[in-house]
Structures are given as C-alpha cells and as structure tokens.
C-alpha cells in the first residue's frame, strides 16, 4: 500500500507513524499546558480530569470550604481547582473517593449539628473550630481509624497533597518543582539557586 509498509513488518515505526506520534505528543503537551509559567492562583494550574467521581457539586463546595481552613491564608482556592486536582487525578486505590466523600459528609454533618449551618455557610475560623471539635487536628491520619482519623487521612491528607504537588503549593515550601508536578521547561532552565545553569 505504501512504500514504508515492509518496514512496519519489521517492528520499526514508519516515517508517517513517527510523525503522527510526534505531532500527537506536541498537541497533548500544548493542551496540558506543559512548560507554561504558573500564575499566582493555584486554580489556574488545575488539570481537567475525569468527571466519573462520586462527589456532587455540594461535596466540591464543602471540600473547597474546608480547604480554606486547612490551607495557609496566602492560598486562594476555587472549586474548579478542588474538583480537577482532587477528584480529577487517578484514584489512589479503589474506594478512595467514596471514603473521601464520606469524610466530607462527616465534617459537614458536624458543622450542621454543632455550629448551626453547613460548612460552606460558616466563617473560615469557625471551620477550623469544626475540625478541632471533631478531634481531627490532634490525631494521626489513619485510613481505618475513627471518623476523626479518617477525615485526617482522606480529607486533610488529600487537600495537602494536591496543594503541595501544585506549583503554588511548591513555592510555599520553596520547592519550584514539587514531586507529582512536571515543573515545566522553566524549571530545567534554572540553576540550583534559581539562577542561570
């Protein structure tokens, strides 16, 4: 059919296949935003992921509200960031997202019961009080522990993970190229001290 057809039989990619693959990679990289400079908001760095997760819009809003209590005040957060970075990633293990949703509901229920409203309706300071009164702030994260330990493991752990694997969160720690984030072309153009290599 083509002049390269015999070459394909040898397991060596043809020129057309090579160019197609190269073009596809470039297109994917452009779509992903690879190598672009991150802006001041972590939300800009969000990755559009799969929507096949068990969280509803209310869960995303609640998790965003909790994030404002967990994250440093320097970080501004948007629901799209939470949805794309938390629920848009590959599920760490089967059932992880379900347990995360359960943890969100546990915090929201506690806020309704003892702080007079949903976690989204109360102030950031009051949200911290909710976590404290649940005992979340004084326990180790344990996947199969008490409700407080599970909230610490699934909810607080995931929020911190997605923050510190994002460029903005990495900058808070002084790490421009955090694990889990490709870092971009700029990171490779800099020397160890941030200067020229």
């Amino acid at each position: 059919m083509t002049e390269n057809q015999p070459g394909s039989d040898d397991g060596v990619p043809s020129r057309r296949q090579f160019l197609t693959a190269l073009g596809g990679t470039a297109f994917a990289a452009a779509g992903y935003g690879y190598g672009t400079e991150p802006s001041g908001s972590v939300a800009v760095d969000s990755v559009t992921g799969s929507s096949a997760h068990p969280a509803s819009g209310e869960h995303i809003e609640a998790l965003t509200a909790i994030a404002t209590a967990v994250y440093p005040s320097a970080v501004s957060i948007t629901p799209s960031f939470i949805e794309s970075r938390v629920f848009g990633r590959v599920e760490p293990e089967p059932g992880h997202f379900d347990k995360l949703v359960t943890a969100i509901e546990a915090v929201d229920d506690h806020a309704k019961a003892r702080f007079g409203g949903r976690i989204t309706d109360i102030s950031a300071g009051r949200r911290r009080q909710v976590l404290q009164s649940m005992g979340v702030t004084t326990v180790h994260p344990t996947a199969d522990g008490t409700t407080a330990e599970q909230v610490r493991f699934y909810l607080v752990g995931d929020l911190l993970y997605v923050l510190f694997t994002s460029p903005m969160g990495g900058k808070l720690l002084g790490v421009d190229n955090p694990p889990g984030h490709p870092g971009g072309r700029e990171a490779y153009k800099q020397g160890p001290e941030g200067g020229e290599p």
């Binding site: 005992g135 004084t138 326990v139 522990g145 008490t146 409700t147 407080a148």
Partner: peptide
Amino acid sequence: VMVLGAQRFYTAAIG
C-alpha cells in the same frame, strides 16, 4: 465516643 467510632479517647476527653 470512642466505642461509637467517632474519636479517640483522649481527643473526646479534651473536648
């Protein structure tokens, strides 16, 4: 509180 699976003994006591 601990038996109900909500918190650890010492965190509930502190509360």
